[in-house]
């Protein structure tokens, strides 16, 4: 019997009778991170990292939450469970599960470049590694974060010169906080959409020291916005809410911007291939670092990635999950 099974409700550990990131309500859920395709409401008990807890409370409402520190063992029915930084967003964890000397790791979403805010990805030795593969093709190789931040700043400066507001599309949880620091260095006021504001407040209230932002309000004077920066989630792109910023230029921060067609399809002015997922090299590096004898690839290019791993002598299979399909995290939304 495998330590983790792929059930119709999510990744299931029978011995411990718990699920990892279930997409249906269950008794006991261990949550890798607070994005809504991984963290869903309705379960009776949640375990996550300390930093994730306030975000789950914000997004899922009242439930029973328990949290743990990095690498702090939690025993469930004799199964040893521990959380390890995945570097995806604030509080994002890989879940290490050990029983009878066998170790499985479910990666959740991860990236191998340290972004300075989400915690550095921690390679964990295991027998079986369940990895995401969102960008599991060799065309996805990210530029260094610093270089992309430079591009974004140059774009903002260019817009300012052309008297346009820079509307930067970034997920309200994760990407928004990641781009905030370099943007705040420009000395311009940064305005945010309500969804970004809510996450920002939750983080500030739980002790994060984040640069100051202003919420876009119905009565925010137009001249305050002109030539400045607005951070908005993908769902706001193309809605009447944007009218207030006219004239503006839209830039999207997403790994999908690596391919021109995606940027053209979305009718945006600039695309920045800034991702919170590992690129091709990052995925390979992570898989190799685990030393796993068996790898399961989930959401993304799992067919191609697992086939490639098999050719490299790493036994790999693909698993269908329901991750990577929520509005904020989907391919079409960026």
């Amino acid at each position: 019997m495998p330590l983790i099974e792929f059930s119709d409700k999510g990744l299931y550990c029978r011995q411990g009778n718990f699920y990892i990131d279930p997409w249906k309500p269950v008794d006991k859920a261990i949550i890798t991170h607070a994005h809504s395709d991984h963290a869903r409401a309705g379960s009776r008990y949640y375990l996550c990292h300390h930093l994730t807890k306030p975000l789950l409370q914000l997004r899922l409402g009242d439930h029973v939450y328990e949290s743990a520190d990095w690498n702090e063992p939690v025993f469930i029915n004799g199964v040893r469970v521990s959380l390890h930084p995945s570097g995806h967003i604030i509080g994002a964890a890989q879940i290490r599960v050990e029983y009878n000397g066998e170790v499985w790791v479910a990666s959740g979403d991860y990236k191998t470049e340290d972004d300075g805010i989400s915690g550095a990805f921690d390679p964990v030795q295991c027998n079986t590694f369940i990895t995401e593969s969102t960008f599991g093709l060799p065309i996805y190789k990210w530029k260094k974060q610093a270089a992309i931040f430079e591009d974004i700043k140059n774009w903002v400066a260019q817009n300012r010169e052309n008297k346009k507001t820079s509307v930067l599309i970034a997920y309200s949880l994760g990407k928004a906080q990641r781009v905030l620091r370099p943007l705040s260095e420009m000395g311009l006021p940064v305005y945010v959409h309500g969804a970004v504001w809510n996450v920002h407040q939750a983080l500030v209230n739980s002790g994060w020291n984040l640069p100051e932002v202003k919420r876009v309000q119905p009565d925010t004077p137009k001249q305050n916005l002109a030539g400045n920066i607005v951070i908005a989630p993908p769902s706001a792109d193309g809605t009447p809410w944007m009218k207030k910023f006219y004239p503006y230029s839209v830039g999207v921060c997403s790994g999908w911007m690596q391919v021109r067609g995606n940027a053209r399809r979305r009718n945006i002015d600039a695309g920045f291939a800034l991702s919170d997922h590992a690129d091709w090299d990052g995925l390979l590096q992570a898989v190799k670092a685990t030393g796993a004898q068996k790898v399961y690839a989930t959401h993304g290019f799992q067919s191609a990635f697992s086939r490639y791993l098999n050719e490299q002598g790493i036994e790999a299979g693909e698993v269908k999950t329901e991750y990577g399909s929520e509005e904020e995290d989907s391919k079409t939304a960026g």
Binding site: L137, P138, I139, Y140, K141, Q258, V259, R260, G261, F301, A304, R307, Y308, E311
Partner: peptide, 23 residues
Amino acid sequence: ITQWLFDECYHTVGDLAETISLL
């Protein structure tokens, strides 16, 4: 890389010139 992996990339990008430039 192998031909099939190149092909996968090409079908995803949808443009040969761009696929090569990304690889």
